[in-house]
């Protein structure tokens, strides 16, 4: 009658009714067929966030001014995505992250300004574990130094 969905942060079991659909079944599959070409030059800026915890691995954002009020924040875009604990890396016009959909882990490049998908790469691997849950965990790092752009991701 019940199904173990995983464990909560307090290590309590999270049970759902057996007839309830898994949440992921309601999420759309990433659209791998659409990849509009990028016309912008691939320029890195001071406010890029090229890897986990930022360019200096210290979690500090430099080169921005903070608003003193939250009231002027405006939602620019919202899109459905798969499951994951990954954060985003942002370089120039592009944002990268990784999530899990059904039997695949997907690395995705989105336009940061619009949320439109530029490309995605699907690996037929799946992480599903009671304590950690269903997820793809990493923030894909982006390296722009020394030579041409490089995006690296680890997979299960």
């Amino acid at each position: 009658m019940f199904r173990l969905q995983g464990f909560s942060g307090g290590f309590g079991p999270a049970l759902v009714f057996g007839w309830q659909k898994p949440i992921e079944a309601e999420r759309p599959v990433a659209n791998s067929g659409v990849s509009p070409p990028l016309s912008e030059a691939y320029q890195s800026t001071e406010t890029d966030w090229p890897e986990f915890r930022g360019p200096n691995h210290d979690g500090v954002v430099r080169g921005i001014e903070y608003s003193e009020t939250w009231l002027d924040l405006e939602l620019r875009w919202r899109i459905p995505i798969g499951e994951g604990w990954s954060s985003f890396c942002v370089v120039g016009p592009m944002a990268f992250t990784q999530w899990q959909e059904y039997e695949s882990q997907v690395t995705v490049c989105l336009r940061a300004a619009s949320g439109v998908e530029v490309w995605c790469n699907e690996d037929k691997v799946r992480f599903d574990e009671a304590m950690g849950g269903r997820r793809a965990t990493r923030s894909p790092p982006v390296a722009l130094r020394n030579f041409r752009p490089l995006l690296a991701q680890s997979r299960s």
Partner: peptide, 8 residues
Amino acid sequence: DAHHPESG
């Protein structure tokens, strides 16, 4: 895995 960031 590594990918080209513009094309994947």
